[in-house]
Structure formats: C-alpha cells, structure tokens
Design a protein around this nucleic acid. Structure first.
Lengths: 203, 203
DNA sequence: CCTACCGATCGGTAGG
DNA sequence: CCTACCGATCGGTAGG
C-alpha cells in the first residue's frame, strides 16, 4: 500500500534518533537500527539511501523545527521590548527541546558526522539561528534593558545552557515542560540583566 | 637528535584527546592515533593495553583536574559567603576548561563509550562534583543571597553553560582566559541573584 | 616499534 | 523485506 511508505520512513528516523542520542552516530550500526525495527540491516536500504541520509533527515528536521518556532516567537512579540522578545525566543527553544529531546540531542551533537557540504549547510543555519539571539541581546543592551555584556559570549552562554536540557530531560521526570521553560527563561534573562555593574559578589 | 620532552604515553593521550575531541571516540581508529604519531597502529599496543584505556586515562585525568581545582577554590574561600565561594568554583572550572579544552570536551562528551564499570565510576565522581555547586546554591538561597530557584535546575544550567566553553574556546581567539572567566562568573552569579530584592545586593 | 596477520564487523549491493 | 555476499576497515595479537 502507498500509505505505509511514510510511516516506515518516519519509524526509521525515530529509532535512529533514539540510538544516535544514546550511543552516538558513529557507534550505531545500520544493523542496530534495523534490529530495533525487527528487520534485517539490508532491508533498511529499501527506505533510505545511506546511513548518513538518516542523520541528515533528523538534523534537517530539527533545524527547521527550531527555525519555525523562532519565527513564531519573533512575530508574536513584534514591537515588544528586547527582554520580552528574548523571553519568547527562549521559551520556544525550550519547548522544542522538551517536545523531542532526542532530536535536539542529535542535532546538537552529531552534525559533525555529516559530509562536508551538508555540514556546512547546517552550520550556516545554526549561525543564523544564534544570530537571532545575538541581535536581541544587542538590542537589549542598546536600549539599556540589559547590562553591558559581550553579546557573543552571552549568546553562547545562554544557548549552551538551554541545549543542556536535551541531555537530562525526561517526560516522566519531576519537572513539567512549562516549569522548565519558566526556570530557564528566568535564569537566562537574569544572566543578562545584572544586579549592578561589576562582580555581583559584593554588597 | 630529538629529545623526548614527555613520555610516549603522554603524547599518545594528547594526540588521542585532539582526535576524540574533533571526531569523537567511536569515529577515531587506533590507526588514526598512530599515524598522527608517525607509527603503525599495532605499535600503539606497546604503550597501551586498549583503545578504551586511552579514553579512560584522559577522562580520569580530567576528573581529577576538576576535583583538585574545586578543592583549591573551596579551601581558599572557606567561611566566605556563598556568592564568593561559587564565584571561585566557577572561575576554577573555567580555568580548567581554557587550559585544556580538548581534555574537557572528551570528558564531557565521550564518557559514555567507557565500559560499564568505568562509566559508573566516572558518573559517581561527576555527580559528586556537581553536588559541590548544588550545595553552594542551596546555601546561597538559604542565606538569602540568591533568589529562590530550583537548585538542581540552576546547577545544570550553570555547569552546562560553562562546559560549552570547551567547544568554541581557542587560545588564539579574541578573548583571553581571564576575561572569559570574568564574563562567565558574572553571568552565572547573575542567573542566581535575580534583578531585585535579594538582600543588600541592589541599590 | 616493525611486519604479518586474525576474526569480527562495518556500510552497502545484487537479485529476488 | 529477504538471503547471500562484497571489499574495507575495525581493535587487537604473534613474534620478532
């Protein structure tokens, strides 16, 4: 039947996501993926052209999901203050991670196993995505909303912290999605807002 | 004549660190390591018992370095306020990363390729290390220095953000070690301190 | 540290 | 989606 072609392909990517997340791309064989689906390794090639194509599909989908979510957050907060806009961007990012931590984990950690042309494409999109955060941080500093900080360092600080959620989050854990979003948004904004000028340690 | 400034064993670990950092443990072959040292793959086994032993040596050294640096930071700030103590812990952590980003990167990203007994040992030590941050955050909240936050989430937020330095730091980059330490310590403390109302912190 | 070599496993193909 | 199979490469050993 024609209808089953899509789900099968999706099932392969889901299983591969799980395994790439757990063991890494290089340590996962096509036979590992196949046996999780109860088929033979060679049978996978009826659905995919190569192991790398599976990684590419996962990474590509993750990139698109992040981009669309950021588009949404950006358009919803058009004209708002930088703090509000960054808050929406952070919450969107956290939501994507908690909705599919394995997808995010593979996207963040396994892109280097892509062939050079694909790797370059993904790095360009990743840079553009980070630039959204960078620009908002710039804007917030200019507007006096955020404390003067190195915006590149702050961007890296915040995005790395957020991505870490993918390594520990479980849907059955003690924290629900919304409260994780709250905590992370609050901490990210605080990191930019500052108490006063310098070291934050003297009263 | 070439003077061996360091033992052969150390050279193997250094080269392996670089390759494990760049490509990951599973995607690095013993022949890759050997050829970077201009010897044959089989010759490596005159110095190491297995590929995993090399990973273990690197991970073990990283763990010990982090532990000793934290001991130092802890003893130097004995009796100080939580903010001061956490500041020292953060700066120590950043210093270890910038002194050997590849070591940290392998420690953080490749421990899952260790055999189960070793993996468990390293996870126990990692948890104990994170607990130092967790305890100080607890203490800071209790003392009213930090805003009330989920301490486990805050610990993960901060440590993940710090570890991210290992992925982008270069000794020839635009930022020197001290200013990275400053930036990260300030942002980490700010993330905990909140914008208003935490004791005598703000004007 | 070398050459020679091992069994196991890899990603992938042929041909139903 | 299967069986049968391919050349390449893997971690590692034997014996100098």
């Amino acid at each position: 039947m024609v209808i089953e072609a899509r789900p099968r392909r999706q099932a392969i990517e889901d299983v591969a996501s799980t395994l790439f997340h757990e063991r890494g791309y290089a340590a996962t064989s096509v036979r590992d993926i196949a046996s999780a689906l109860d088929i033979r390794g060679a049978s996978l090639y009826a659905h995919v052209a190569s192991k790398e194509d599976v990684l590419w599909a996962i990474v590509e989908r993750a990139a698109t999901t992040f981009e669309r979510t950021a588009d949404e957050a950006t358009s919803v907060t058009l004209g708002a203050r930088a703090g509000v806009r960054l808050d929406a961007l952070v919450r969107g990012h956290v939501k994507v991670i908690t909705e599919d931590p394995e997808l995010t984990s593979v996207f963040v950690n396994e892109w280097r196993h892509l062939s050079p042309p694909r790797r370059q494409l993904i790095l360009i999109r990743r840079d553009a995505y980070q630039q959204r955060f960078h620009d908002l941080i710039d804007a917030g500093i200019d507007a006096g909303e955020f404390a003067p900080t190195d915006p590149a360092v702050a961007t890296s600080f915040i995005l790395t912290a957020l991505n870490g959620i993918a390594t520990w989050y479980s849907p059955v854990g003690r924290l629900d999605v919304d409260s994780i979003g709250d905590h992370y948004a609050v901490m990210a904004l605080r990191a930019l807002t500052g108490t006063k000028g310098s070291k934050g340690e003297d009263a």
